[in-house]
Design a protein around this nucleic acid. Sequence first.
RNA 1: GAGGGUGUAGCUCAGUCGGCAGAGCAUCUGCCUUUUAAGCAGGAGGUCGGAGGUUCGAUCCCUCCCACCCUCACCA
Length: 485
Amino acid sequence: MEELRDHLRHRREKLQKLKELGINPYPYKFEKTHDSREILSNFEALEGSKQRVKVAGRMVSCRPHGKTIFAHLQDGHGKIQIYLRKDDLGEEKFKLFELTDLGDFLGVTGEVFKTKAGEVTVMVSDWQFLTKSLQPLPEKWHGLADKELRYRKRYLDLIANDEVREVFIRRNRIISTIRSFLDSRGFLEVETPILQPLYGGAFAEPFETHHNALDMKLYLRIADELYLKRLLVGGYERVYEFCKDFRNEGLDRFHNPEFSMVELYQAYADYNDIMELLEGMLVKVAEEVLGTTSFQYREHQVDLSPPFKRMPFFDAIEQATGIKAKNLSLEELKRAAEEAGVDTEQKKTWGKMLETIFDSLVQPTLIRPTFIIDYPVELSPLAKRNRQDESVSERFELFIATLEIGNAFSELNDPLEQRARLEQQRELSGTDEALDEDFIQALEVGMPPCGGLGFGVDRLVMLFTNSRSIRDVIFFPTMRPESRS
RNA sequence: GAGGGUGUAGCUCAGUCGGCAGAGCAUCUGCCUUUUAAGCAGGAGGUCGGAGGUUCGAUCCCUCCCACCCUCACCA
């Protein structure tokens, strides 16, 4: 038998004693009448009524005073103090409390009162074990601070840090607001394959897997764009999907290998309509979740009042850098970029160069919500050419407080041009992946004109929860496995 | 992939210009019938991330390795 540290051994011993006493430390259920929040908000009524409440939760603090005990139970909505007295409980039930530990789930019955110090408290007339905890809790005052532990053992993070629980509740409200916003506008929520025989809809390294029965390679999707477009071909006019996408790239505070996106497609609309849709959606989310459209994200004050600023890609570059990039050759562009202090090593194409200039010199300046519109065609193989200027595409990206929030096009639906653009893209990126012929064929069947949008849910949650890292808004971020070093 | 930082008790952190390893919380024992970071008294708890090296002596200095964080690179 392995040696257990004292704090683990003591809990095991208490568990053993409970079993010897014929007490089940892991009973099946407990009929709660109230949660902590209900008791606090209904205190006036409960205090007068002499009604007995039954509450349950994890014991997170305990202050014994000889023949009385104060403790706090934490449940799904907060904490409630409980008060036990030997006189009320009797010798046996009071002594049994010695077998509790911080972290145990307890169920208590009692009347509600207010202590001398003014805290609403349950005067316990009976209590029972609901679950015995065999591990110690993080420190009560400082919580759990070690980031690695917080990410690896999120359950401890959630127990110890109230604000973390709040972040994920807010994440849920953001998602449900988006869903109801789109539903109310006639969008149909759909599901498309995560396992795809060909990957597409974005440029990124995919994760590969293998299907045994079919003996075939499959990819985890990097985007669901090409499947949603097939659904427009099929006749649905407005579709969206909350999709987990997977990209086999580096990790940093804006990127996790698996992440959440929403993609949506609206028939008979163009990117201007999508801009208005996105403005409306963000305002709605802000009002639902924050109660205001003006808020702080890190060092930036954000105001989501529409309409957001719109600025053409090349104008944005010129305004931020003075570079008139549109008519420059690759060489001229490279020289201008280097003069501006941009590392242009490894940037082999005109488009890549532009992108680098934009990312390093323009994006950091985009504080107020701004649609950057009309990207170079080379960077946007799935977007229609601009109706006034063939050299740029009808595409926008939305930036808020320097965060890249969303990406949208007037979707290219000319099958011949689409094939040509994808083939050109393959040459530029040097990949030998097969074209998705079925997608092209779907376009040949005919996809109505449409506007499409993709936005990162995690980034949006970061924005609305003032989170620095994507790992703070994903319960279980991807981590290297713990190894015994 | 490059540079910087961090790693000490279950948790939060000190510390040793190289000489017996520290505090608070948690835990254990005793006292305490309205406390709330409860209090008082006492105790236990350590491979100082791992492996080498230098040294009379290494948690501390050096090398390598591991994990995480930050910045950059990569990433429509």
